[in-house]
Computed example of a mutant assay.
Amino acid sequence: MEVINTTGRRKTSVARIYLSEGEGTITVNKKELVDFFPSDILRTIVNQPLDLTNEGGKYDIKVNVQGGGIKGQAEAVRLAISKALCEINAEHRLVLKPEGFLTRDSRMVERKKPGRRKARRKFQFSKR
């Protein structure tokens, strides 16, 4: 099996992964998964597609992730892993698609408009 390369995005986070056969190590920005994502919830988010398809421990995953916050990064990695698993076996799509793991969440922060304090916040108005 060759190396599979996919990307995942969430908000302003971009994750690029390289998936190859191995013993199940996940390296994020040259750190172990436990070191990069200290929270159990974030590690669970990253491992969800592997657990759902029973592919945990079969592949080594190298991840480069940048931008956004730590939760957006975790969800970007989850999308990239899901896309890679679908490339390996098309039947995984039937399991991952209903869970929403193949859907890119494109919501981003709305930009600040000129003349306003925030994106939609108007200045205080008083009639008198």
Rank of each mutant, 00 (worst) to 15 (best):
V95M: 14
L42Y: 12
P49W: 01
E55P: 01
K11D: 04
G115F: 01
V46K: 09
I70H: 13
N54M: 03
R111K: 15
G56Y: 03
D40F: 11
P98R: 05
N64E: 13
S82H: 03
R93N: 09
I26H: 00
V65K: 08
K62D: 14
G115N: 02
S106E: 12
R10M: 02
G8W: 11
L52A: 09
G68H: 07
E99I: 12
N29F: 07
R16A: 12
V28S: 08
E55L: 05
K62I: 14
N5C: 10
N47R: 14
G24W: 01
I41M: 12
H92A: 04
D40P: 06
D60Q: 02
R78N: 13
A90H: 15
G67D: 04
E23W: 14
S13C: 01
K83S: 05
L52E: 08
P98S: 01
D35F: 08
E91V: 00
L52R: 11
S13P: 05
A76D: 06
V34R: 15
I81F: 05
L50D: 05
C86S: 10
L79F: 07
R104K: 11
N29H: 08
P38C: 10
I41S: 13
A90M: 12
C86N: 11
E55Q: 15
G24P: 00
S82C: 02
A15P: 04
T53S: 00
L102E: 01
K112M: 01
D105Y: 02
K83T: 11
Y59F: 14
I70L: 15
R78M: 13
A15R: 05
R107K: 03
R9C: 00
G68P: 04
A15D: 05
Y18R: 15
D60I: 02
S20Y: 03
D51L: 14
F36K: 14
D35G: 09
V77D: 09
D40C: 05
S20P: 02
K112N: 06
P114D: 13
T12L: 08
K11G: 01
Q48M: 10
A90T: 15
Q73A: 12
I45S: 10
G67Y: 08
E91Y: 03
R10E: 04
L52V: 05
K83G: 04
V63M: 01
E32P: 06
N5D: 14
E75A: 06
V77R: 11
Q73L: 10
